[in-house]
C-alpha cells in the first residue's frame, strides 16, 4: 500500500512546528521513503517556480534536480527555528535559478542594457511548451518574460504561491517592505504590458 503524506497548510514563516518536520525527522533517521514523500510533495511547486523564472523546460528540470540533491544532502543543516522547510527549499531553488540565468545570459550580455534587464525578444515565437496555453495565457506568459528578474521572482512567489511579503522577502533576501514595493511595480508593469498587447 503506497504511503501517503498528510499535510496541512500552515504559515510558511519560521515556526516551532514546521509541517514537514515529522517527515524531515524520518529522513534524518535514515528512512528512504521519507525522502520520496518530501520530493513528491514539493517537487511540482519547485518545478513551476523554476519554469516560471527561467521559462525553459530543460533548465527548470536541471535546477529542480540540483535543488533537491542539495537539500537532501544538507538536510541535517536545516533549522526549523530559522525558516520553514518550504522557504528553505525555495531559497535553494531561487539561488540556483539566478546562477543558471547569470551563466546563460552573461556571454551575450550587452552593456547598453541595464544590469538587471534581460533581453526581451518579443518577436521570437514562444516555445512549443506554451502551445497548449490560451491566447490570454500566452500574453501573460510573454508579459512575465518581459519583467526584470527581480520583479518576476516576487510576482511569481506572490501570484502563484500566494506567499506573504515577509516570506517573499525571506526567500529573495530583502526586507518585507522591499518585497511589497517590488510587487507593486510588477503588478503595474504587467498591467501596462497586457494593455499594450490588448
Amino acid at each position: 500500500m503506497p504511503e501517503t503524506l498528510i499535510l496541512t497548510r500552515t504559515p510558511a514563516t519560521a515556526t516551532n512546528g514546521d509541517e514537514f518536520q515529522p517527515v524531515i525527522d524520518r529522513c534524518l533517521a535514515g528512512e528512504e521513503a521519507a525522502y520520496g514523500l518530501l520530493y513528491q510533495r514539493l517537487s511540482p511547486l519547485i518545478y513551476r517556480l523554476n519554469y516560471g523564472l527561467l521559462q525553459n523546460r530543460e533548465d527548470a528540470e536541471e535546477v529542480l534536480q540540483d535543488s533537491f540533491e542539495y537539500a537532501f544532502r544538507n538536510l541535517h543543516r536545516f533549522d526549523s527555528r530559522k525558516a520553514a522547510f518550504k522557504t528553505w527549499l525555495y531559497q535553494i531553488a531561487l539561488s540556483r535559478c539566478r546562477n543558471k540565468r547569470r551563466r546563460k545570459w552573461l556571454p551575450s550580455f550587452s552593456l547598453s542594457q541595464g544590469i538587471y534587464q534581460e533581453i526581451a525578444d518579443t518577436e521570437t515565437p514562444l516555445p512549443d511548451e506554451t502551445l497548449a496555453l490560451s491566447g490570454e495565457q500566452k500574453a501573460v506568459w510573454s508579459a512575465l518574460k518581459q519583467l526584470s528578474p527581480k520583479l518576476r521572482e516576487t510576482a511569481l512567489l506572490r501570484y502563484y504561491e500566494g506567499l506573504t511579503y515577509g516570506e517573499i522577502g525571506e526567500i529573495v533576501g530583502v526586507p518585507a517592505k522591499t518585497a511589497e514595493s517590488r510587487m507593486r511595480l510588477a503588478h503595474q508593469e504587467l498591467k501596462k504590458i497586457l494593455q499594450r498587447v490588448a
Partner: peptide, 10 residues
C-alpha cells in the same frame, strides 16, 4: 490569470 498561466505552462 497569472496563476492559471503558471499552472498550465508549468
Amino acid at each position: 490569470l497569472v496563476r492559471e498561466t503558471m499552472l498550465a505552462a508549468g
